[in-house]
Design a protein around this nucleic acid. Structure first.
Length: 285
DNA sequence: CACGAGACCTGTTCGC
DNA sequence: TGCGAACAGGTCTCGT
């Protein structure tokens, strides 16, 4: 489910209230319940309890697709992976089927990590860099420039689709927003990164930021049963639109597999890179 | 370094 | 209707 815009939507709901919930900021943890052991990556369940009981949530942040809860001396990090969600509910509510970790908070509420597929993880650490250390730049940050993206693209020789999904290259993009950004930029998903010129890199840079900002503005994309709330799914150009007309040119959207991920694109707006090598001497490199 | 396959999981949808 | 296969917002690890 959650890519940067969905995580950002959850973050602001937890911090400021929203999605029918109240803010968790300033609330003390009165109890904790771990319902699926593997959800807690670090530390041990006993150590987790000991460290978090009585602590107060001071802020809720985000880095890439990670959600961060500050507890002065510790940080609780969540990665929602495919099916995770964080909800605030009345503590009297029955425990929903896929709740994996619950924190009872002051005010009769609880924060619940719900994760059908059990891929999601939580960490309670004193230094969040231990978990976040390898992440690439934050795409919406002011210091992430088109020049910086171009530099990073030239430093690698990889297909754009898997490269943009690589969180050490850039943090926060997933399958949806990558397909959308590549379409907006007019770049084929199999284009090799170090063949992009300055203009193409700049177009990719602005497309990435545009689709992420659009996603946040629409409060994320709701697909299937998992995440609900946003309506960015109504504005998809290519994602899950196989066989439907491209909104730009009307050609039919294609679907291929790239790195085991379904990949959607318009073969007219995003021409195949193999048809137009930039320079000669392609053989025997 | 780049890439593909398999693993981790459950639920829904598709094809026969 | 039933049943297995394919597929799903992600990432890690291993082998080539």
């Amino acid at each position: 489910m959650p890519e940067l815009p969905e995580v950002e939507t959850i973050r602001s709901a937890l911090r400021d209230g929203g999605r029918g919930g109240v803010s968790i900021i300033g609330r003390r943890v009165q109890d904790s319940h771990l319902l699926w052991d593997r959800t807690l990556a670090e530390p041990s369940p006993a150590e987790f309890r000991k460290r978090i009981l009585g602590r107060t949530i001071e802020d809720v942040g985000r880095r890439g697709k990670y959600l961060l809860m500050d507890f002065s001396a510790h940080t609780l990090l969540f990665h929602l992976r495919m099916s995770g969600d964080l909800v605030v509910e009345d503590r009297e509510q029955p425990v929903a089927p896929h709740h994996r970790l619950m924190l009872d908070l002051e005010g009769g509420i609880r924060l619940a990590f719900n994760d059908t597929r059990k891929f999601g993880r939580a960490w309670l650490v004193s230094d969040p860099q231990v978990v976040l250390g390898q992440l690439g730049p934050e795409p919406l940050d002011g210091d992430f420039t088109a020049q910086e993206l171009h530099r990073r693209l030239l430093a690698r020789r990889r297909q754009l689709k898997p490269l943009l999904l690589d969180q050490t290259f850039i943090a926060g993009l997933g399958n949806i927003y990558t397909d959308e950004a590549l379409h907006m930029a007019g770049l084929h998903p199999l284009t090799i990164s170090n063949t992009l010129d300055r203009v193409q890199s700049e177009r990719l840079w602005s497309s990435i930021r545009q689709v992420l900002q659009d996603g946040i503005r629409r409060q994320g994309a709701s697909i299937d049963w998992v995440y609900k709330g946003g309506d960015f799914q109504n504005y998809f150009r290519v994602y899950q639109r196989t066989g439907k007309p491209c909104p730009t040119c009307g050609a039919l959207i294609q679907r291929i597999q790239v790195g085991q991920r379904g990949t959607h694109f318009c073969s007219n707006c995003q021409p195949s890179p193999t048809q137009a090598p930039l320079s000669g001497d392609v053989e025997d490199g």
